[in-house]
Amino acid sequence: IIFCDLICNGVPSNRLLEIDIKNNIKDIKRIVSFRDKVDGWEQCLAFTYVNKDNNIVRLRGEVSFFLRAFRVNYALRNCCYNCSYCKMERAADFTIGDFWGGDLSDEDKKNGVSLIICHNKKAQNILFNISTIEYKKIDWNECLPNNPRIYCGRRFIQWIIPRKILKIIWKCNYKVQEQVLTDSLGVISKKRFYWIGLKIWRIVILKIEQIYRKAKLLSILKSM
């Protein structure tokens, strides 16, 4: 038996998809891909579906409500904000996920590069004997800084919009849901000055999260 676990950012609430279908993609018949990477791996994601006329429709990331809300991370499952599986000590043979950061070529940035972590000799033997995989050995200093979900399962971002407030937002109209859940509040507009408080609060929370992750990363690297 070979065990493999994942580097996971978190699972978004299915309510995001329900909101999108109800307000934007009413002609949907079948979902093809939540994150279509045809145009590129890093920033050119698209929500792809088949409409009722059996045509394939691609909503780019900057247009799709679901993808915009997914990127902001306000509406993940509760357990994803304090995931006990995001740690260096793992029970699996392999850990796999997207490789972010590092010295990548433009082609690699477009096509994507995977990260494979071998936790024992058995995993190393399996990987090194697969001739169809092109791989490059890297150290922890290259893969950990831009992949915090390898070692840190705690997210402070959940406090930007607490659960009780989120329950109220689920009941609001689409305009409010879109502005808040996709973080597209226009604080520059005179009519929306009241959102400035939330924007400042977001900056503070993300800074705290960044400091916490950095401290945890330094502690891990020093212990190696």
Rank of each mutant, 00 (worst) to 15 (best):
N55V: 12
Y81L: 07
R77S: 04
K37Y: 01
K37T: 15
D36H: 03
F70E: 06
V72P: 02
S64W: 10
N78H: 05
K87Q: 15
V38L: 11
A69R: 00
A91I: 15
W41A: 06
G61M: 05
R77N: 09
Y74T: 09
R58C: 03
C83M: 09
K87P: 08
N73V: 01
S84G: 11
A69W: 01
F47I: 02
D36S: 14
K52Q: 13
D36K: 12
W41Q: 05
W41H: 14
A75C: 08
C80A: 08
F66R: 01
C86I: 08
V63Y: 05
Y81H: 03
N54Y: 12
L76R: 02
V72W: 00
V57I: 15
R90P: 06
C83F: 10
F66N: 00
C83N: 15
E62I: 08
E89P: 03
E62F: 07
A46I: 08
A46E: 05
Q43S: 09
N51M: 01
V72N: 06
F70I: 02
W41K: 02
R71D: 02
R60I: 13
F70V: 00
A46F: 07
D39S: 14
F66S: 07
W41L: 01
K52D: 12
A75L: 08
V50L: 13
N55F: 12
D39A: 13
R77A: 04
C79M: 07
A46K: 02
N78Q: 09
E42P: 00
R60M: 11
Y74R: 07
E89I: 13
A75F: 13
K52Y: 04
T48I: 06
V38N: 11
A69Q: 05
R68L: 11
S84V: 14
F70K: 03
L59C: 10
C86N: 15
